[in-house]
């Protein structure tokens, strides 16, 4: 995950909002209403101390998680798809979910490194073929069936008064002190194969994920490049 945070810092410094997606070129979504299994969103909202340390805030995090799930459900509903949230599991099922969440974070980290951060794997040139493996079917079964699984990762931060003061001083001295930033990625997994068929990442120095309107704007921006159901290329 550390590479992802370096990446978001770099992307946010380059402009206000950066969005870039990748899709498996050969994959076509079925031309029928889809069922999307939404995995437990990995969300954290923090405030930045004057020294730049992110202090997670539980209330802000809960608000952002609720707002993002609401925005996702509404966006997919507008496409004619239905959303199933994968509920809390227990025992072996909980362990399996945690294992796949961890594997997905690792795969996303490699996607960030080799598709966003400038480093290239020669065998991946012009391809997008990362996977979690066909074992993800079990996640669909846990949710009562589904066509795709959607993983959501979001980090949002807001500058404290001390941080704002430091930003002003920094600007007066001709330097740059980063303030609050948001970083969100979504990835869509084919529940038959485990292949990641679409991945989109947004880094921005603007917005507020705690606010339903801010969450909606973020989700709508990210979903804009989701492959169309009728088989159109993204």
């Amino acid at each position: 995950m550390r590479r992802l945070f370096i990446l978001v810092a770099m992307m946010a410094l380059c402009g206000c909002t950066t969005v870039r997606s990748f899709a498996a070129p050969e994959h076509r979504l079925p031309d029928r209403p889809l069922t999307i299994v939404v995995m437990r969103p990995d969300v954290e909202v923090s405030w930045l101390t004057a020294g730049g340390v992110a202090q997670p805030n539980a209330d802000w995090t809960a608000s952002a998680r609720t707002a993002l799930i609401g925005a996702l459900t509404a966006e997919q509903g507008a496409r004619g798809n239905s959303v199933r949230l994968l509920g809390e599991q227990s025992g072996e099922a909980a362990r399996l979910v945690a294992d796949y969440e961890a594997l997905h974070r690792t795969v996303a980290d490699q996607i960030a490194q080799f598709k966003y951060a400038g480093m290239i794997l020669p065998t991946k040139r012009g391809k997008f073929d990362w996977t979690l493996g066909p074992g993800v079917r079990q996640l669909g079964e846990m949710a009562g069936g589904g066509d795709y699984a959607l993983f959501l990762y979001a980090r949002d931060s807001f500058a404290s008064d001390g941080r704002l003061a430091l930003q002003i001083v920094g600007a007066a001295l001709g330097g740059y002190v980063p303030g609050g930033e948001r970083f969100v990625y979504l990835s869509l997994i084919d529940l038959r194969t485990g292949d990641i068929i679409w991945f989109n990442l947004l880094a921005s120095a603007r917005g507020d994920l705690r606010d339903p309107e801010g969450a909606r704007a973020t989700i709508d921006t990210l979903m804009r490049t989701l492959p169309a159901r009728a088989g159109a290329r993204p």
Binding site: A9, M10, L13, C14, A117, G118, M119, I120, Y176
Partner: peptide, 13 residues
């Protein structure tokens, strides 16, 4: 950081 980014982007590809 801008120059770090440019350097990374230049070296990577």
């Amino acid at each position: 950081w801008r120059w770090v980014l440019i350097a990374v982007a230049a070296v990577g590809p």
